[in-house]
Design a binder for these strands. Sequence first.
DNA 1: TAGATTGTTAATCGATTAACAATC
DNA 2: TAGATTGTTAATCGATTAACAATC
Lengths: 213, 213
Amino acid sequence: MESKEISQAVISRLPRYFRYLGDLKDLGVERISSQELSRLMQVTASQIRQDFNNFGGFGQQGYGYNVEYLYQEIGKILGMDKTHHLIIVGAGNLGQALGNYMNFERRGFILKGIFDKNPDLYGKKVREIAVQPMEEIEQFVKENEIDIAVLTIPKNSAVQVAEILVANGIKAIWNFAHVDLNVPPNIQVENVHLSDSLMKLSYNLERANKENK
Amino acid sequence: MESKEISQAVISRLPRYFRYLGDLKDLGVERISSQELSRLMQVTASQIRQDFNNFGGFGQQGYGYNVEYLYQEIGKILGMDKTHHLIIVGAGNLGQALGNYMNFERRGFILKGIFDKNPDLYGKKVREIAVQPMEEIEQFVKENEIDIAVLTIPKNSAVQVAEILVANGIKAIWNFAHVDLNVPPNIQVENVHLSDSLMKLSYNLERANKENK
DNA sequence: TAGATTGTTAATCGATTAACAATC
DNA sequence: TAGATTGTTAATCGATTAACAATC
């Protein structure tokens, strides 16, 4: 039971810190102050210190932060020290693209299964993992310890499939379907609504065009 | 020159309104009040009215909002009444997946070119569009009216390619590369950092696991 | 010790929610 | 007209920034 609830605004910034710290580490930088990091990342030093202090003091007065240590700690907070097993539901272009993306595996996200309802795809391999019929999914999820389901199926079937997954014990869904899922509050959902993102870009493009006239 | 700057928080919500209104329209619903929409979308009626009123009054006291009209207006705000020409830079799995995604075309986002530096991919077709060598990109962008460049290339080349695109007149970048681009402020960038999103899910999963123990 | 920089409290800013007068 | 619901102002809440005492 966690006492202090940390805002999603803070959480959303952690992966970016993690990325910059990883780069600094690779560059051999040993320590960094909130001010230097602030210049690098274009956010205020105040915000950096506030963000880190949500999780306890990682720094040292007069010194700053040890890059390697901070990197490790943020990694732990994000669960990067653990292995996660995932399945991909929907073996279309996007599902395959995500499955083939090596970097996820490097971070401990291991692809365990991939499913589709299209028989033409059965047996097709995505990184050694053969596409299985959708019907197998319940059994598979029950028998294997799956942490995360990646939903890359059309919106009309997404809600129903999500319910099946939840009923069989899935605790987290990475949702690429363009629809809001209706799941119990203890199930974690992270939405990636690509067309929403593209529309936002379209709006900003439009607005910038208008301003420059 | 726009007078009132509308916050990105509001803009980010518009595509979701657009989606719900589209669904309502398809269901034949003619009018809706902020309260009904509030229940449907799980946001406050107050926020709905505030959001819409950033762009002028779309409703009518005592009646509510006309679904069709509101849908059209939000569509216009998002630039959905216009055609956008885009190119995809990076013809890997993700680039191809995005290129093949039909729904973007339905919304007026027309794929005009696709580029990669891997010669094995030259000539490969993604929806009638043949992959071209990366070297062609400058000329192509100059000669064709391209609005948006979709970056689906590895992080190490992304920053440099973005600079080339900007130098040749690209005004908006949809960035899937896991790196922050450094472009002038009049260039619009929308980032889709998939691994950031997955890490956030990982954090929330972790936290939920702890709480339930 | 003096200087640097964190951790943390206080002040500010912006976004969300509530309330209600205007009006269809 | 009475009822409903917007548009909009005011109140609240939360997130960001500033300031500074603690401390390495």
